[in-house]
Design a binder for these strands. Structure first.
Lengths: 140, 140
DNA sequence: TTTTATGCAAAAGATTTGCATCACG
DNA sequence: CGTGATGCAAATCTTTTGCATAAAA
């Protein structure tokens, strides 16, 4: 099942209505390879859906966020989002084209244990993000 | 040499003036154990330095950021900063009290190599952040 | 004295809210 | 149909800029 279909199902299951606006926002979100902001998403929707208001984009994204269907990105000056798999995963970001690849394997667990021993913290979560240049951007 | 003194020296060396306002902003920044936003820093300064304008806080922090003297935090809804050691390091954040501990050892380099092999990326940087509860917050 | 920094006020952006209308289910 | 969703406009922030004044070096 596609990411898009999953998002729609989750919305429906949670008791929210599947309006044309929400469908369009989700389609645009899933279609974008790079993380989006509410503003950038609204701009992307404008050509095909000029009738969709910025407010609706804000509200739809807030909804998806509340349902835990988004993952957050922290690079750049604004917080941005992407439709994300609900499983724990890490990000690999291309500094050239901005595309994001997920990878779910290899959590730094030994490192986590070492840090717990050294600091006395009980560690409950971690985020790991690699950045660099993808194959195509290295050639360019 | 204290972090505070280092920041002042860096500013001076870069040719910027050491005004009372900048000294106060830097003092408050260094004093805070948790990451700050421009707004929170301005609020923290208000009792002792009501004369310092929000604009000056924005400008001072932008300056420190430009000189690479801050590190960025991504948790929460706003981007926040802390005076940071210029060396590459990772963060360990306490979800209880918000304090941050740096650690510089143990970069996930084998993992990085594995990801490079699997994806064809050339990886140039990474961020790793652990979060959990510090010793005192576990007891509480 | 010269150049830069500050603070106010205003402008520009970003986000949230109130409310009447519309439309999914 | 009824309830929740939308879109507009207005209200709130947040952040940036212009400009006259103040003060570091």
């Amino acid at each position: 099942m596609s990411t898009q279909q999953q998002l729609l199902n989750q919305l429906k299951t949670a008791g929210y209505k599947l309006t044309p606006q929400r469908r369009a926002v989700i389609a645009a979100l899933v279609k974008s390879a790079n993380p989006v902001t509410n503003q950038s998403l609204h701009a992307a929707l404008k050509p095909d859906h000029p009738e969709i208001g910025l407010v609706t984009v804000y509200r739809t994204m807030a909804l998806l966020d509340k349902l835990g269907l988004l993952c957050r990105f922290n690079y750049g000056d604004h917080i941005s989002f992407r439709a994300g798999p609900p499983e724990h995963h890490h990000h690999l970001v291309c500094r050239g084209c901005g595309n994001v690849v997920d990878f779910t394997d290899h959590c730094p667990l030994e490192l986590q244990s070492a840090v717990e021993r050294n600091t006395g913290f009980r560690i409950t979560e971690h985020t790991l993000e690699f950045a660099g240049y993808c194959r195509s951007c290295q050639e360019a």
